[in-house]
Write a protein that binds this DNA or RNA. Structure first.
Length: 260
DNA sequence: AAAGACATCAACCGCGGCCTG
DNA sequence: ACAGGCCGCGGTTGATGTCTT
């Protein structure tokens, strides 16, 4: 696929856009293997590829680079993404730094195709406090439970005290064929701690901003949280949390409590 | 089986920051 | 100090695959 640009120079007129061919991939891969990353405009120039430096960089980082992982974002990774996004917002490259092998593009796509979609279905603004609290107090604890369930199914340990240790061990067990961790264990530990705190609301400041009910007292907060936590724990099914069934469940939950 | 709707993901674009001369 | 080039980031688009009717 070759389209011309509106630029006037002959060079600009012959720039290739669109999907990369195997041949182009091979040329780029071989060049970077020999010369290393960087100087992307030079890469484009010296390889003879009719691509911009930007395009070469993107193709390398998102596709050709060794250890790049695509598809099947694990629960641990989803949990990390949700947590890190709650801290940093749309800082995709920063978030990607903590998910080895994952690219900012992939994380961004995950967020837009899964999380934003679910927010729409819940008729929430994705950046609204209501939706963020839903993620934090319903989805994240639920993800954690699933991760724990996966871990306990492969481990004899089942005590609550061993929860975090088990979780981290599980994360460590998820390494790719090249031995790269799928998740940063120290970060996952931090995430699991904060998400686990959701099971013990008393640990939070009573005026904590995390209030699924949208501004009630601390006592109603605790009581309501227990309710949500219990229902979340019992109401979801399936291996994928982002299912229509679960969204309907949440919609009902929000409607019942006049949250929308 | 075909067509339309929807979901996913690779790639492009514009902008801002940094570096260098 | 500043202008130009390069790089990286985040937002958006378009192609392709999958599902539904």
């Amino acid at each position: 696929m070759e389209r011309s640009l509106s630029g006037s120079s002959e060079e600009e007129m012959s720039i290739t856009k669109g999907p990369w061919t195997e041949e182009e991939d091979s040329v780029l891969f071989n060049y970077i293997t020999v010369h290393g990353e960087g100087h992307w405009n030079s890469v484009a120039r010296y390889t003879g590829l009719k691509r911009t430096g930007k395009s070469c960089r993107l193709r390398w980082l998102n596709y050709l680079r060794p250890n790049v992982r695509r598809g099947n974002i694990t629960l641990e990774e989803q949990l990390l993404i949700l947590d890190l996004h709650s801290r940093w917002g749309n800082r995709w490259s920063k978030i990607a730094e903590h998910l080895p092998g994952r690219t900012d593009n992939e994380i961004k796509n995950y967020w837009r195709t899964r999380v934003v979609k679910q927010a729409k279905q819940l008729k929430c603004e994705v950046n609204s406090k209501q939706f963020r609290d839903t993620l934090r107090f319903v989805w994240m604890p639920r993800m954690l439970e699933r991760i724990q369930a996966q871990a306990s199914s492969s481990s004899s340990s089942s005590s609550g005290q061993a929860h975090q240790t088990t979780l981290i061990s599980n994360a460590q067990a998820h390494s790719d064929p090249c031995g790269v961790m799928t998740t940063n264990p120290s970060l996952l530990s931090e995430v699991s701690s904060s998400a686990l705190d959701a099971h013990a609301p008393s640990l939070y400041d009573s005026s904590a901003s995390y209030n699924l009910m949208g501004g009630g007292s601390s006592s109603s907060y605790s009581a309501e949280y227990c309710y949500y936590s219990d229902i979340a724990g019992n109401g979801f099914g399936g291996s994928d949390l982002w299912t229509d069934e679960n969204i309907c469940f949440l919609q009902q939950l929000l409607a019942d409590h006049d949250l929308s």
